[in-house]
């Protein structure tokens, strides 16, 4: 169970014009603006639910994920995930979550994937029997096989993403955060990743929170969407709320963004 209530987060952003002289001016006097990355965000997600968390770039998606995973501390508001506050009980909390940042790797660049997995086993103190079982299952479901013996730097993006997802599930997390998991993937890899997420959610009842810009991901995976824009929750409902009256979800979404001026 995830509950987020009235969460606010602001950042300081310094702005300046391009060019050397304005860079020099900024050195002497910096103009700062406060950006409300999250403004009174509240929602509840039940166990085993699969939720698409969408919004334009800079809307506050990543900030929310970072708060939910205990990386950032909000200025205001409360957050309870299975009875724990992420930023206060960080260590206890992160044992139960898996996080995949689509654009960053958690695998070691120069060693075979298997070695990275072994290290994760140590970090999460995974019981050897559980580890072996999970590894077998994940290898099978994501068809990792040979990939495990390849150094990460020699994997293709799609292969790497499959390994990333496996890496974040070795410790049996109850909640999985996927931050743009299909970004840059080819059609085959995308489908493989989607299939896997569906199976994971159905078989293990893992709660999945997914951020993406790919509407096909959302259509294939989630029934519920939460839409955020300029730090505010604008919609908490189903995909049809957006698609209605448009040819594709993409167009519906674009029109929704425009009408809310985000």
């Amino acid at each position: 169970m995830i509950t987020l209530e009235n969460v606010c987060k602001t950042y300081k952003v310094s702005r300046r014009d391009a060019g050397f002289s304005s860079a020099f001016k900024a050195l002497l006097h910096r103009r700062c603006e406060l950006i409300h990355a999250l403004d009174n965000v509240s929602f509840t997600i039940a166990d085993g639910e699969m939720v698409g968390y969408i919004g334009p770039n800079g809307a506050g998606k990543s900030s929310t994920i970072k708060i939910l995973s205990g990386i950032l501390t909000p200025e205001e508001g409360t957050c309870q995930i299975n009875g724990l506050t992420p930023w206060k009980n960080r260590i206890e909390h992160v044992k139960n979550i898996g996080v995949v940042f689509g654009q960053r790797t958690q695998l070691w660049w120069d060693v075979p994937v298997m070695d990275s997995f072994e290290l994760l086993k140590e970090i999460y103190r995974i019981d050897p029997a559980v580890y072996r079982r999970n590894l077998e299952e994940l290898t099978d479901m994501l068809s990792l096989g040979e990939l495990l013996r390849t150094p990460t730097r020699q994997l293709s993006l799609g292969q790497r993403m499959r390994c990333e997802i496996a890496a974040s599930l070795l410790h049996d997390p109850k909640i999985l955060f996927l931050d743009e998991p299909t970004i840059g993937l080819d059609a085959v890899s995308k489908l493989a990743v989607r299939d896997f997420i569906l199976k994971l959610n159905a078989e293990k009842k893992t709660t999945v929170i997914l951020t993406t810009h790919d509407m096909q991901d959302i259509e294939a995976l989630t029934s519920r969407i939460i839409l955020i824009g300029k730090g505010k929750i604008l919609l908490d409902g189903v995909i049809d709320d957006i698609r209605e009256g448009f040819e594709s979800t993409e167009e519906g979404l674009a029109s929704f963004y425009r009408s809310h001026d985000i």
Partner: peptide, 8 residues
Amino acid sequence: DRILVRPR
């Protein structure tokens, strides 16, 4: 960020 999401 990666360090922070690990239970150590």
